[in-house]
Design a protein around this nucleic acid. Structure first.
Lengths: 138, 138
DNA sequence: TACAATGATGACTGAATCGGTCGGGAAAAT
DNA sequence: ATTTTCCCGACCGATTCAGTCATCATTGTA
């Protein structure tokens, strides 16, 4: 699969935050991990990355938790996966330059762009079931 | 990087075979590895996969080598990368089913389809210099 | 103030994957 | 028979993936 567990967990968590964004109270880690069967310790790391990227804000202490830092309709899957991509390699392979190699490089580049354009079109609100359905209970 | 070294080497080797496909003589491994700076032992493995997938045919012994098993205009990058993808895991993640999770799964599926569709449009002849009969433009 | 509830952080780990390498074998031309 | 080429399975070091652990810091509440 092209999508890592980390990426999927990140998207699910962000979707969960988006679904409850009209409620101003922050959402506890366990509320997300319990609902989506995500390892708690792992999701902490991931949400910390989201926070560092400015997508999520947090408050500590009792009744603390996580909130989206921006409106859910302004956050796309490209934003989320982009955070994780930035961990990725410096990306230079050491091959002989040739017309073929350059042609291929161009294809890989276009492929990446196509992917990004696709992901940029998908906002959190596009994947959140309409928030007036009341399928979450405090 | 989305593209592994293995995938890139496979494409380069196939392009090299395509470039010399009008010459009926098979192409030696070293001719490919020398030109593109690919580790020999590694490319053997890769070409063996291509052969098993029916994309390449071989002949052994002195003056043996590799040839494309089909005309280069009938082989796309999707064909080549598809061979390597088939090594990949059945990949089922163990997450709680929810509307969000299902929505995401649908997105990943569409993403894979978009990628495949893109790669299916690129034939070997599109990337081989001086045989640009195709309509793919870099 | 004490304490419980919550997030923050860095180190660690087992398993898998990636990018090869090694040693030897098998077929075919000369 | 020898050389030239491909065939094949096993192996290996480094890196990444998917978490886990221990411990600390901050905040609300009794």
């Amino acid at each position: 699969m092209l999508i890592t567990a980390r990426a999927e967990y990140a998207c699910l968590a962000m979707l969960e935050l988006a679904a409850r964004h009209n409620d101003p109270r922050p959402i506890r880690l366990t509320e997300v991990t319990d609902k989506h069967a995500i390892p708690q310790r792992f999701l902490v790391q991931i949400l910390l990355q989201m926070k560092a990227a400015g997508l999520v804000s947090t408050s500590r202490g009792a009744s603390g938790g996580y909130r989206l830092a921006r409106a859910p309709e302004t956050i796309t899957l490209a934003d989320i996966l982009g955070v994780l991509d930035r961990m990725e390699k410096p990306e230079d392979r050491n091959l002989a330059p040739s017309t073929m190699a350059r042609g291929l490089q161009s294809v890989w580049k276009q492929l990446g762009e196509t992917r990004m354009h696709f992901l940029q079109k998908i906002r959190l609100t596009d994947l959140v079931p309409s928030s007036n359905s009341g399928d979450y209970v405090i």
